[in-house]
């Protein structure tokens, strides 16, 4: 019986640690994917001038699930994206407020500007993200620590219960 309770506690602790770690991982994925997306956009605007729909559709599968899902939603609401972005901003809990605001501002004006202004907007968002990447990377180490803590805490509880 004690063994079973210990095992359950271990599983719960590992699960919580894993969840916390994966949240940080998802956040890092989203931010790095958004950065890659900005680079793809910049290249396309400078050289091919392809339509946004083509760029988004062709690139969305190269990203992690979090950002790919976000882009899929954006594509299907492209003409009235503000409503979708407002909903996303109020519901999302992955990104901190500043990053979410940058993503929101960029996406809500995406495709609405001439190429110079669009490139300027990409540059500004990139500058913010560059200054923010250190913080996100540090959080990622917190994530792996949480997983380790979960495992160790779970094991400790398991031993105590036994």
């Amino acid at each position: 019986m004690n063994f079973l309770i210990g095992a359950i506690l271990l599983a719960i602790c590992v699960f919580v640690g894993f969840k916390v770690a994966s949240t940080y991982k998802k956040k890092l994925n989203f931010v790095t994917d958004f950065k890659s997306f900005l680079n793809i956009l910049e290249t396309n605007i400078m050289f091919t001038q392809d339509n946004l729909n083509k760029i988004l559709t062709e690139s969305k599968n190269t990203f992690h699930k979090e950002f790919s899902d976000f882009l899929t939603k954006y594509i299907s609401n492209q003409q009235n994206s503000i409503e979708m972005l407002n909903k996303w901003k109020s519901e999302q809990n992955l990104l901190d407020n500043d990053t979410a605001e940058v993503v929101y501002n960029f996406m809500s004006n995406l495709g609405r500007n001439d190429s110079n202004s669009q490139l300027q907007a990409i540059k500004q968002s990139n500058e913010f993200l560059n200054s923010h990447m250190d913080k996100v990377s540090k959080e990622q180490t917190k994530g792996s620590m949480s997983l380790k803590l979960g495992i160790m805490g779970g094991l400790a509880l398991f031993i105590i219960v036994l």
Binding site: I45, Q49, D50, Q79, G111
Partner: peptide, 17 residues
């Protein structure tokens, strides 16, 4: 009016510079 132009540019005003 901005939305009309945005849609006319297939949501890519930069591509119609």
């Amino acid at each position: 009016l901005n939305d009309i132009i945005f849609r006319a540019c297939e949501c890519s005003v930069y591509a119609h510079n």
